[in-house]
């Protein structure tokens, strides 16, 4: 069989990637407190337990707030940068863009430690806002990457045509540009939201007394008895992430179809 080796490789690869994740729901719905095979029986008690913990609710609210604000800020910055990059030529454009994209390859722990040092030096308190600042930093490159393709696929003469028909620059942006890049914007919001929601290292360093969901989760791990609850929470997070990323990709592809552009490759 042709490509047989490659097929086996792909199978093993997928198994390695997803088997651990599949274990999450398996133990989340297991009635035993011990995380081990054989499974004892089906139960939703760990999910029910989740509902009763106040500290968890606070962590969830912190996480949602951070994720929403980070996503909005990162996307706003992304819109400005991507539009500039797609429309204007200027001196040092390459290096500037490269600099903005740097956090993409920078280990998060470096971002975290650097920001922690800065905040402490400035005498500021750690709060959700310090996490937001860092999350914006790591989300902006993703936002730009998504939006840049949206703006680049937008024929510049569409905007000129609107101006030619009497619209101002701003009304042109509102009537033509924004609707046409909207799928990209939604996709950027969702991806940034997901990144922020899942992010642990930065949140761990910078959240202070306002833990996010992943930080809270990590805290639970110290107690073996709460492991099944962690599994339940993890299951919810995985499902949520997959949902968000899929929606983001859906919007990105719809945007391409609408502007009649060819796919230049997204994140999925």
């Amino acid at each position: 069989m042709r490509g047989g080796g490659l097929r086996i490789y792909a199978l093993i690869y997928l198994l390695f990637l997803y088997a651990p994740i599949l274990l999450l729901p398996l133990f989340a719905f297991n009635s035993s407190q011990i995380i081990a095979f054989p499974l004892a029986g089906f139960s939703t008690r760990w999910f029910e337990e989740l509902v009763t913990v106040d500290a968890l609710h606070e962590a969830v609210l912190n996480s949602l707030f951070i994720a929403v604000v980070s996503a909005v800020l990162a996307t706003l910055l992304g819109i400005c940068a991507a539009r500039t990059a797609a429309r204007y030529r200027f001196r040092g454009k390459g290096p500037v863009l490269g600099f903005i994209m740097l956090p993409l390859v920078l280990p998060e722990i470096i971002v975290a430690v650097a920001l922690l040092t800065l905040i402490l030096q400035l005498g500021l308190d750690l709060s959700v806002w310090s996490v937001i600042a860092a999350h914006v930093l790591i989300c902006v490159p993703f936002s730009i990457a998504i939006l840049q393709s949206a703006f680049q696929n937008l024929d510049a003469s569409l905007e000129e045509a609107a101006v030619d028909l009497g619209e101002t620059r701003w009304s042109t942006f509102r009537l033509i540009t924004l609707p046409l890049v909207m799928p990209g914007i939604i996709s950027s919001l969702l991806i940034s939201f997901t990144i922020s929601l899942d992010e642990f290292i930065i949140a761990f360093f910078l959240s202070g007394t306002d833990p996010t969901l992943p930080v809270y989760l990590w805290g639970l791990l110290r107690f073996p008895s709460s492991l099944p609850v962690v599994m339940a929470l993890g299951t919810i997070l995985v499902v949520l992430s997959i949902l968000l990323i899929t929606t983001a990709e859906f919007f990105r592809r719809r945007g391409l179809a609408r502007t009649g552009a060819t796919d230049s490759g997204g994140f999925i």
Binding site: D155, S157, D164, R258, G260
Partner: peptide, 27 residues
């Protein structure tokens, strides 16, 4: 450009893809 007594038919036509034909013409 938006205050000149000229209008342009662009080489790519630049028809607004998210609008209907009537919305384009009435733009």
């Amino acid at each position: 450009a938006n205050r000149r007594p000229t209008n342009m038919v662009f080489q790519t036509y630049a028809v607004f893809p998210h609008l209907s034909v009537a919305e384009n013409v009435g733009f």
